[in-house]
Simulated assay, not measured.
Amino acid sequence: MNIRDEKFKVAVVIPCYKVKEHILSVIEKIGPEVDTIYAVDDKCPHNSGEYVIEHCQDTRVKVLFNEENQGVGGAVLHGYRVGLDDGMDIFVKVDGDGQMDPGLVKYFINPIINMDVDYTKGNRFHDIDTLKPMPKIRLFGNAVLSFMTKFSSGYYHLFDPTNGYTAISAVALKKLPLEKISKRYFFESDILFRLNIVGAKICDIPMGAVYGDEESNLNIKKIMVPFLKGNVKNLFKRIFYNYFLRGFSIASVELVLGTLLFLFGMIYGISCWSESVSSGLPATSGTVMLAALPIILGVQLLLSFIQADIENQPRISLTRLLSDRANRSDY
């Protein structure tokens, strides 16, 4: 049977931590395109899970509990695992604090249903006018984090990496090492890195943001350094996996040769400059060229590598690829 003829089972996963005042309103706004709603109580001190059980009448809701607080990523992963066991096909992650419009779910799942992509995520930066209510510190922080995540994930066309409004196909989710994904606030950025490693195709979905009386648990100042460390680590892992472990191309040569030339030029130039300062004798033109030329060539090669890395994007979604393989095996 062609996968297009089947009805996709859609699940919404809502991490619940200090969202007691907003969670019922969020659930009420989730449309009929969703089959199951997993509300995951992440050891909430306000007992959000029990509150949902007592006051929510939506029969689609299943309340899950974490025995200890695991962070937003840990709560979402719990919902993912249960949903996979329940046979869900698409998972949408929506925060329970009211900052995300549940009416947008259909826009997040449509590209996945059409098998155009495996993963969709919200982008609040698409429309400049919607950024006016965003606190300036969050605006600046998101811009910096977006720049870092572009390099670490390899998805250079994406923005707003900390946006938690996402959707993912079960096909792509089963390819990910769920036990290795970060469980705290680095979850969204880390999962982008993991998706690139398995060759998943993703896209941004333009959306606005709602800022009311809800209290955000995300502190840009506190997460900046951990995000920097995590992104640098993922960058090196991605480069090693994609260009040396699983494949080797001209871009691999450009990276190695460019790095060696740049480092040689810098080290040689600094040493010659130090010697010139201590001796009081100016460096010869030949010495200057011997230091400058490797730096220039190294930079050119590294820029060529970055250009190749930008163009190295998944062309076909895993959902379509695996579906096509399954269909061919039927004949």
Rank of each mutant, 00 (worst) to 15 (best):
N69I: 09
D95H: 09
Y80I: 07
V92A: 08
R81S: 13
G73P: 10
V72F: 09
G74V: 04
T59A: 13
G73V: 12
L84G: 07
G83E: 02
V82L: 08
M88Q: 09
G74S: 01
T59F: 03
D95I: 06
A75F: 14
N69W: 13
D89P: 10
D85A: 15
Y80R: 02
K93S: 14
F91N: 00
G74L: 01
Y80E: 04
M88L: 01
K93T: 15
V72Q: 02
V76H: 00
G73K: 10
V63I: 14
R81I: 12
D97C: 11
G73I: 14
N66G: 06
H78S: 12
V92L: 05
G79W: 03
G71W: 13
D86W: 05
M88K: 01
H78T: 15
K93A: 15
K93L: 14
G98T: 08
D58M: 08
V72N: 02
V72P: 01
H78C: 13
K93Q: 15
Q70R: 15
V92W: 06
T59H: 11
R81P: 01
V61I: 09
L84S: 08
G98D: 06
D85E: 15
D58Y: 06
V76L: 03
L84C: 09
R81G: 04
V61N: 10
V82C: 04
V94R: 01
L84D: 05
V82W: 00
M88R: 02
G96F: 03
L64R: 05
L64N: 07
F91Q: 01
D58S: 10
I90L: 05
G98P: 05
L77Y: 02
D86C: 12
F65N: 13
G74C: 02
N69H: 15
I90W: 00
Y80T: 05
G83Y: 03
L84R: 07
Q70D: 08
G79S: 09
Y80K: 02
L77F: 04
K62D: 08
H78D: 02
G71R: 11
G71F: 14
D58L: 08
D89C: 02
D97V: 07
D86F: 04
L84Q: 11
G74A: 02
V92I: 13
G96K: 05
V92C: 14
F65M: 12
E67C: 03
F91E: 00
V92F: 06
D97W: 12
V82T: 13
G74K: 00
H78Q: 11
K62N: 14
V63H: 10
N69R: 15
G96A: 08
D95T: 12
I90V: 13
V94S: 06
M88V: 07
K62I: 14
V61C: 10
I90E: 01
V82G: 01
G79T: 06
L84W: 03
L77S: 04
D86G: 03
V72D: 00
K62F: 09
L64G: 08
K62V: 13
Q70M: 15
V92R: 11
F65D: 06
T59Y: 04
N69E: 12
V94Q: 05
F91M: 01
V72L: 10
Y80Q: 03
V72S: 02
N66L: 13
G74P: 03
V63A: 14
V61L: 11
N66V: 02
